[in-house]
């Protein structure tokens, strides 16, 4: 058992030394009814996958959850009750789908604590097998980079749009989950490109990555 674990650990360490392109990623953005993972609900998921260092647009998904209470947040997200009625999916089935995709991919978010908080909460309430997910946070990467370069960044400078500007990425008007997921994916590509041709996952991970265990409260 121990040897097996050590072997896995060693294997994982070796893997992080490979080029970041050798890994697959799922870049996720979720829209919620508010900021508190305990009280607020997920309204929609948007994601897009990255492989061989390029964004695979066919993998893009935009899923609006069934029965999400929307109310005040409509102004920000532009999702209406009719969208939910028309496209609504069950949260649990979406999480199942997501889990399947994430088994072989690294989760990428801009400002991870928010997405991770909601995912953890959602997992607790769902009857899903526990699992550990490795993640990268493009905001954390951006912050580390600024610190290393001793470049003070003004307030709000780490927001998605502002971060993108530093890499010459275009302005995107929309702020639905899918647009933000795509925008984050492009940011990831740019950040990796700026690390140089030999950018390793290890480098990105050190700048803003981690591993989180998602557990269900309902024992399975």
């Amino acid at each position: 058992m121990l040897i097996e674990a050590l072997k896995n650990h060693w294997h994982a360490r070796q893997m992080t030394k490979r080029s970041w392109c050798d890994w697959d990623y799922l870049v996720l953005d979720i829209e919620t009814t508010g900021l508190d993972a305990k009280q607020d609900k997920i309204v929609s998921f948007g994601w897009v996958c990255v492989q061989n260092g390029t964004i695979d647009l066919d993998s893009a998904r935009h899923i609006v959850l069934e029965g999400a209470e929307i109310g005040e947040s409509v102004g920000i997200h532009m999702i209406t009750d009719s969208d939910v009625a028309l496209l609504g999916k069950k949260q649990e089935s979406v999480l199942r789908y997501l889990r399947q995709l994430l088994r072989k991919r690294i989760l990428v978010m801009h400002h991870g604590p928010m997405e991770l908080g909601f995912l953890k909460q959602a997992w607790q309430e769902a009857a899903l097998p526990a699992f550990s997910v490795s993640w990268l946070d493009t905001l954390a990467i951006e912050r580390t980079k600024a610190n290393r370069n001793q470049q003070p960044i003004v307030e709000g400078g780490f927001r998605l749009g502002e971060s993108r500007k530093r890499y010459g990425l275009p302005d995107y008007d929309g702020h639905d989950a899918l647009t933000d997921a795509l925008a984050t994916a492009e940011l990831l590509l740019a950040q990796a490109a700026y690390q140089g041709v030999d950018c390793r996952l290890h480098d990105l991970n050190q700048m803003g990555g981690g591993r989180t265990r998602l557990v269900s409260r309902l024992s399975l």
């Binding site: 893009a60 647009t179 795509l182």
Partner: peptide
Amino acid sequence: MAALDIPEVQ
């Protein structure tokens, strides 16, 4: 879902 459904791409 296809790339064309991404508003910015479209």
